[in-house]
Amino acid sequence: MMPKFVIGDIHGQIDRLHEALEYIAKDEHAGAPIVFLGDYVDRGPDSRAVIELLMQGQAEGKPWTCLMGNHDRFLLRYLANPNYMDPNVSRPLLWTDPPLGGAHTLASYGVDVREGRDLDDIHADALEAIPQAHRDWIANLPRLLETEEHIFVHAGLRPGVLLNYQKEDDLVWIRAPFLDWQGDWGRLVVHGHTALDAPQLYSNRLNMDGGAGYGRPLRPGLLLGREAFLLGPIGRVRL
């Protein structure tokens, strides 16, 4: 049984990420692999710093796997087309519109996103400000990670579809068909994307999105087989 740590949606909260990594460092299994479930950017103030920390950790050879989230993909699609509206969003929105939080990401790269600025000027500044290395890193993020005991994914899986045939839109965006399904996947599915007040374990899945993008704590998880624990200031708490 290989222990693994898991960290849910970070959303530009670099201080929360440092705190989560400190909790992991104090655990007896410190040094075990960490899986990050995507959504590193948007809403919080420090998206650039989050990406730089994750890139640096991987460059140093830390056993970190970073998956792609829908917000990370949105950043790339905005850079390709500033008028892009993802059809998976519940209503027509640009990435820079307040509910999605892309303006906070651009601001973390030093882009002037003050209200009233021309959107084309903001986009031109973004193309200049966001390093190609950051774009390449996001573009190459895996969408899924399988182990003997777990399936790690940002949003979830579509019931009735084999893993090899899952569509990227579902892996980074799905909600109700996955969240409502009570069947057994054969392994515990570990995901984020749908924000709760705190991570929660269900019979067939573990939701690690505790709402850090909305100012709530970012608690890392520890997986020992299908047992799951949250790490925090008092140590481990079993889910």
Rank of each mutant, 00 (worst) to 15 (best):
M1R: 01
K4N: 02
F5N: 09
I7Q: 02
G8E: 03
I14P: 01
I14F: 11
D15Y: 03
R16E: 15
R16K: 15
L17A: 02
L17D: 00
H18G: 06
E19M: 12
A20S: 12
A20D: 09
Y23P: 07
A25V: 12
E28T: 13
A30H: 15
P33R: 14
I34M: 11
V35S: 05
F36T: 15
G38H: 04
G38W: 05
Y40Q: 06
V41A: 15
G44Q: 15
R48E: 15
R48K: 14
V50C: 15
E52S: 14
Q56G: 14
G57C: 14
A59R: 11
A59P: 04
E60L: 15
G61M: 13
K62G: 10
P63G: 11
W64Y: 15
T65F: 08
C66T: 12
C66N: 10
N70C: 11
D72V: 11
R73S: 03
Y78V: 12
L79W: 04
L79S: 11
A80F: 12
P82N: 03
Y84H: 13
Y84I: 08
M85C: 14
P87H: 04
V89I: 13
S90A: 10
P98N: 02
P98L: 02
P98H: 00
G101N: 05
G102P: 09
G102Y: 04
Y109W: 13
G110W: 07
V113E: 08
V113F: 02
R114A: 09
E115Y: 09
R117Y: 04
D118V: 02
L119M: 13
L119Y: 06
D120E: 14
D120L: 11
D121S: 14
H123R: 07
A124M: 08
A124I: 06
A126M: 03
A126K: 00
A126R: 00
A129W: 07
P131Y: 04
P131H: 01
A133C: 00
H134S: 03
I138N: 00
R143F: 13
R143T: 09
I151D: 05
F152N: 02
V153C: 00
A155H: 06
A155T: 06
A155G: 03
A155D: 05
G156P: 01
L157K: 09
L157P: 01
R158N: 11
V161F: 06
V161M: 10
L162H: 15
Y165D: 15
E168A: 12
D169T: 13
V172K: 07
V172P: 00
W173T: 08
R175V: 04
A176R: 14
F178R: 10
L179K: 00
D180K: 07
D180E: 15
Q182L: 14
D184V: 10
G186V: 03
R187N: 09
V189K: 00
V190D: 07
H191F: 00
H193Y: 09
A195P: 14
A198E: 07
L206H: 07
N207H: 06
N207R: 06
N207C: 06
G211S: 08
G215K: 03
R216P: 05
P220E: 00
G221H: 08
L223P: 07
E227T: 11
E227Y: 08
A228K: 06
A228H: 07
F229L: 08
G232E: 03
P233C: 09
I234W: 12
G235T: 01
R236T: 03
R238T: 01
